[in-house]
Design a binder for these strands. Sequence first.
DNA 1: AATGAATGAGTATTCATTCAT
DNA 2: TATGAATGAATACTCATTCAT
Lengths: 187, 187, 187, 187
Amino acid sequence: MSAPATPARPARRHDPGRRDRLVDTALDVIAERGVTAATHRAIARAADVPLGSLTYHFDSLTDLLAAAFSRHVDTVAARFDERMRAAPDRAAALEILVEHLTGDLLGSPRDLVLAVELYVAAARNPALRAVTQDWMSRSRRSLERHLDPVNAREVDALVEGLVLHSALSTDPMDAAQIRSALRRLAG
Amino acid sequence: MSAPATPARPARRHDPGRRDRLVDTALDVIAERGVTAATHRAIARAADVPLGSLTYHFDSLTDLLAAAFSRHVDTVAARFDERMRAAPDRAAALEILVEHLTGDLLGSPRDLVLAVELYVAAARNPALRAVTQDWMSRSRRSLERHLDPVNAREVDALVEGLVLHSALSTDPMDAAQIRSALRRLAG
Amino acid sequence: MSAPATPARPARRHDPGRRDRLVDTALDVIAERGVTAATHRAIARAADVPLGSLTYHFDSLTDLLAAAFSRHVDTVAARFDERMRAAPDRAAALEILVEHLTGDLLGSPRDLVLAVELYVAAARNPALRAVTQDWMSRSRRSLERHLDPVNAREVDALVEGLVLHSALSTDPMDAAQIRSALRRLAG
Amino acid sequence: MSAPATPARPARRHDPGRRDRLVDTALDVIAERGVTAATHRAIARAADVPLGSLTYHFDSLTDLLAAAFSRHVDTVAARFDERMRAAPDRAAALEILVEHLTGDLLGSPRDLVLAVELYVAAARNPALRAVTQDWMSRSRRSLERHLDPVNAREVDALVEGLVLHSALSTDPMDAAQIRSALRRLAG
DNA sequence: AATGAATGAGTATTCATTCAT
DNA sequence: TATGAATGAATACTCATTCAT
């Protein structure tokens, strides 16, 4: 009887950076199948890692999900702030916001889905609410580079509503409509 | 509690209207503990009804949840349309919308929670998406009694964003801010 | 390919009295392998029943263990009280106690083991402490048919110590020694 | 707490006496949370020592527990023998025994709990039975400084029963009752 | 028509021990 | 010498659904 040539997983006892990889994989699973499907098992399978590895690196599933969402928020918020900072004036900022919305958020299903999943999960899980609140405040601070605080908050709410509408509606608004609405609201 | 140890219920074999009662109870459970906690068992216990009764009346849990959300949307959308219809003009309509938002939606945790739960559930469950789309279009049609279609859609998006913000934020916007934003957006 | 003649478990969908059987089986597992080995899985395997059946009939493992120990205590305490009641006088009662100790408790490994397992489990598990306290008080009441209350309690403590000694010692005391000690203590 | 997220400990690579400290800590954990909660992880955390350190110093968890119980028995048995040796006569010895019981054993929850935990663990774990037997024989030898061997064993059994009763009962016996019972049994 | 029992797949989590560094 | 990472088996428990009565 010959030994199997390539066993499924070749005993990868040394795997530095696995913790990081798990966070990324968790995010992938959330994006592809939703937070409620992001179980220990599903993530372990997607990362090709034994089940016990997850609970070794993260005390609870919530911890892992929070780490994953945090990383996502970091990426998205940093990118958004960079763009706002690069905008020379208010008009340019609004135009960049439109691009950001239609391009990154509404354009890529992944970012959109992750945003909605985070909203949803945070609604029931206090540990995740810290992540959404961080996101909100960073987003608002970025807008405040060009808008006054009250206005920044209003625009932020509209952005969120547009995201949600886009996720659930069959015929989302196009760039021109979004631009027009933002300009009116941003005064 | 161990199963056969609960003879409390007196075997109510004839119980017309039970199906209706189950739908209402399902909604209560969703509002109080979230969609993911709305299991057969939880609903059966809350309705004081044997477990088998649920699968007798509903082919699947999704069917029951869809029925529950549908009933909720019917109630809310009808109430909103009634109010819009009663508004004499556009200005009055906007003011009624502010009241609707700060009173019913943002004021009562129950309606807010149910809205977000429905958003979330629908994001992953196609059977529920029909319900959210019905809600959106009815809401838009109500707004179109006073706003042009494009504007109605923008306002609807802002409303949704405000609901979400209110659910997740620590310091939600007050009525004056909401009124001001709506007026600007509704031109 | 011929169908297997006798499949492992032939789909016993109807099995009245299973709850009772589970209690008995749990007691067997405790007696044979100890309380800490009395897991859902172990009991399910011993009873030839699917795992889910245990959690259907008992809300928690503790509930099941409590039911098992309760049944055991009922049996043992009833038998002891019957004997005490049958004793015509104090001297006869003491002699019967000796027989009870050397025969049932110290003689049969099963009863001895179950007693010690219950002591141990109760020391950490409040839900089981009710069972031990019930046992203690029933045992004392039986003794009080022939002994004054203070004396009954002393004798009860000695009996318990003898049980423990017998369980842990390599050379337990014999009937004559036990008789002598009891007579002295019972004055 | 997620594993790599705790850099609190400053990598104490040189730590003579750590083995000893681990034994003491194991005993603390047993006393506070019971033998079944005395896991590698729990002890490592309590001793502020990396997990691998436990398996480095002890071949198995049982080895560590045995070392811990042994040390405890050494302490307790030595203290008891010292007291028995100091007693001028039989009457004094009995009185010291009463004090020992009401003071050390029944008075301090720690010693009582450790005794019961050891009883329990030994009932199932042969490696620990050597420890209990050592304890019993040392205890008996101490008593034999003033009592004949048969009597010493009887008294020892009563003591054990009183310990158990005290651990499990809601209304333990007081010093006077214990003194009276011991005197009668010790003749 | 109605339901209690049954079931099997799934959930998060714990843990003793092994191993590569 | 010492340890952080890794692992696989085990734990209690939940649940949608099926089915015999």
